[in-house]
Design a protein around this nucleic acid. Structure first.
Lengths: 292, 292
DNA sequence: GTTCCGCATGAATCGATAG
DNA sequence: ACTATCGATTCATGCGGAA
């Protein structure tokens, strides 16, 4: 099976228009959060965020297959002592576009950013909003099952050592209580809470999320040979993981430095490049170059 | 210190009107979830939920002290394959009433019940929405500190140079300067993700949440002698915990069976009853009976 | 080979000060 | 008044080198 990685350099909304309808099985992305990453992405004001994002979700709706899934990793920031509401508003507006808000997964960030404030604790979670076009969508639950033999170990591992210490310090939390219920099973299904640490010691590139995050959703919502799209590619984590898992992938990035970096790191045999017309003066079909 | 537990039997909105302004330090409650089925307890249709709840939150706003906090335990149900949006809408509408949406805590239900659906995993989390009247509110962070991770033990031996230089070089957020402040620290501040198991072995009453949940928020947002309100008392978990923790509490319950059950279980010395006027034909002040 | 231990760093937030 | 910048504060993790 030949696996392709198509990379687009340019504005997300514009580049998406070059994709045909119903061609993507999974969209997994983490857009720039409002007023964050100002130094790189310029920062969208919380009040403008929904207006900025809706034209993009409209394109995403178009390119997603009817059986496909859109997973949006996002978290609202604190402004003036209060959580911004743009994620809530965005969800409501996306439903008006036809999206179904199927589920909300929680990414529990085991090693969240430190800090202390008089009225707030550390923020240790982010949203993973699942949207679909149709009530019927592809889902391969078995692919993310946890082997039962390792269940206790894995489950305990999912709660970090620190969490365990804290559990034991509580009275009667009895974590091992229900393990006996599972002894006669081989595999267990996971829940909608994911326990993952952020990757903070990656020298080359600092990804917004760990590889385990897209990996889990790629397993769950696609099979080999399917196509994964990340319209805010960044350092390309989604695309690298998709490639490794034998899924085709499409990445869109507006910052040339990131685009170049990903382009150079994707395994050449499996890379297709689509650069802006202005750069090479080629037609769209000509611009699809397979490097071998 | 004399600790009182005031119980009201009746409709939540009506009973709340009997309370004076700014008299409550913490509101902790888990309202009946929206339900399509009619004629069940709390069988409010998802489409009507916001309209039904807003008059109640208006009263809650009135009775809460300016320094007080409202913690709402809620989770939207799945209706027709989709998550209902009433919690999102409620949050937005409450802000129009003057509430500040300060924070959203996650209750990770470690032992949620097994189950299998073709397009959905087990729901292992619920929201704990924190609302305030003012940016300044009472918060006792030290009361909920947790054991620090093991890393601290080894960390303290070294006092490496980088810890100091990082601050001097001013590279983003620093660790450095005041390492001596926490040299002997063995406790850390928690995050906004709570790991608690549901209580499944409670014979008498099936509580919506484990005692650890109100306990944590009562520790965090009140001190001894303060007043806690649960406008949807149910089996009285909030009130029992508050009482044990030497906080006054108020409970409102519309179902007589629940009301009677809680009334009989609260320690008599500390119980004040406020029953509907129609039942005993007494004035409000007369109805305040201390049983000793 | 394990285990241990040092270490960089991460979608942060608040309050004060400056333009 | 209103926005922009800056300093102060704080944990946990996985990697890699050492024991």
């Amino acid at each position: 099976m030949e696996i392709k990685t198509d990379l687009f350099l340019g504005d997300c909304e514009n580049e998406l228009k070059k994709l045909s309808d119903n061609c993507v099985d999974l969209i997994f992305t983490s857009p720039p959060y409002a007023d964050q990453r100002k130094n790189t992405y310029g920062g969208i004001h919380p009040n403008k965020y929904v207006d900025w994002f809706l034209p993009i979700t409209e394109q995403l709706f178009r390119v997603l297959k009817p059986t496909g899934t859109f997973v949006l990793n996002i978290k609202e920031r604190v402004v003036n002592g209060e959580r911004s509401t743009y994620v809530l508003e965005l969800t409501l507006e996306m439903r008006k576009q036809g999206w179904l808000w199927t589920e909300e997964f929680i990414w529990h960030k085991k090693n969240c950013y430190p800090g202390k404030w008089p009225n707030r604790f550390r923020d240790a979670w982010e949203r993973l909003l699942q949207f679909n076009k149709d009530k019927k969508f592809a889902m391969y639950q078995e692919a993310v099952m946890v082997p039962m033999g390792d269940w206790a170990k894995t489950r305990l591992k999912s709660l970090s050592e620190t969490d365990k210490t804290r559990d034991e310090s509580k009275v009667g939390s009895g974590f091992g209580k229900n393990i006996s219920n599972w002894l006669d099973r081989d595999m267990a299904y996971p829940t909608n809470v994911l326990h993952l640490a952020t990757e903070c010691n990656n020298k080359n590139h600092s990804a917004a999320f760990p590889e385990g995050l897209p990996e889990w959703f790629i397993k769950l919502f696609t099979k080999e040979g399917d196509t994964v799209l990340d319209p805010f590619m960044g350092s390309g984590t989604t695309n690298f993981v998709a490639n490794r898992m034998k899924r085709n992938s499409i990445g869109i990035e507006i910052i040339p430095e990131y685009y170049e970096m990903v382009k150079n790191e994707v395994h050449p045999v499996e890379l297709y490049l689509l650069e802006p017309k202005t750069k090479y003066e080629k037609t769209q079909s000509e611009r699809r170059i397979a490097i071998r």
